[in-house]
Write a protein that binds this DNA or RNA. Structure first.
Lengths: 132, 132
DNA sequence: ACAGCTTTTTAGAATCATTATAAACTAGTC
DNA sequence: GACTAGTTTATAATGATTCTAAAAAGCTGT
């Protein structure tokens, strides 16, 4: 199993549940956006198998901390995650309430001129809201 | 009262509560960031007067819809609002969990090269996460 | 000023995503 | 296999936000 090493390398025990979640998240060419609920449903459907919601939360947060997932900064009642962990940005279609990836190359270079003493820039994320 | 007209002009009845909230939000040179809870506390302290939490929610949402406030796109368990409604961006200090304004002039021009059919860009917001 | 109508406020209940709990289970090690 | 620490689980708790429906307040015409 290709995910066993990945998990071990970051200090996460490769449990059955984590491996299954890896499958659902990473066994595809396409990256995607999801909420915890989306993921729980996808697991049930795709693996015909229920993983406790608490475990889904725990795992997603663990993966995020290890850098396998990114949270998308957006105001919504649910938290959105992204399996695309490259530096990139998002469109948010206000009407459809859907996120669309916006690659770094589709945004001109961003130059932050203001500096904050004692702080380093960790990430720069752009959210482009769309209307009709 | 200077806010009466402002409210009437946007079709909101100038009620006592709305006028008081205007005072707390807009009677200052400095703009600021707040959550609903921050605001409810500020009202209690500053006006020595309690406004029902439901009213605070209603009013903030009404003001946001009318463009007197902006929601700040960030992942937090609470929703953040901004009395600064000019086009601008934010630093988010991950350690202190604090927002800092980043004026448009402190960010180089942003050029979104990708277009989505049938959609217009409504806003472009940058979130710069800071670490130590 | 008042009647009539609509909008707003309010306290409290309801909702719903997320987090905490603590008991049962499992992976890794000897 | 037995020990230990890390995980999973169902369920309860939390907490921000929204809903409800009754009371209050704004507005308009008289």
């Amino acid at each position: 199993m290709k995910y066993i090493e990945k998990l071990r390398n970051s200090g996460l025990r490769p449990t059955k549940q984590r491996l299954q979640i890896c499958e659902v998240l990473f066994d595809t060419d396409k990256t995607f956006h999801f909420t915890i609920n989306d993921l729980a449903n996808k697991i049930k459907r795709q693996l015909n198998n229920k993983i406790s919601l608490a475990t889904v939360y725990n795992t997603v947060h663990a993966f995020e901390k290890k850098g396998y997932l990114k949270q998308i900064p957006i105001n919504s009642n649910q938290t959105y995650f992204d399996t695309n962990i490259t530096d990139h940005h998002h469109f948010y279609d206000l009407k459809e309430e859907k996120l669309i990836d916006l690659e770094n190359s589709d945004v001109g270079p961003i130059n932050i001129l203001k500096k904050i003493d004692g702080k380093k820039i960790k990430s720069v994320e752009v959210l482009v809201k769309l209307e009709d």
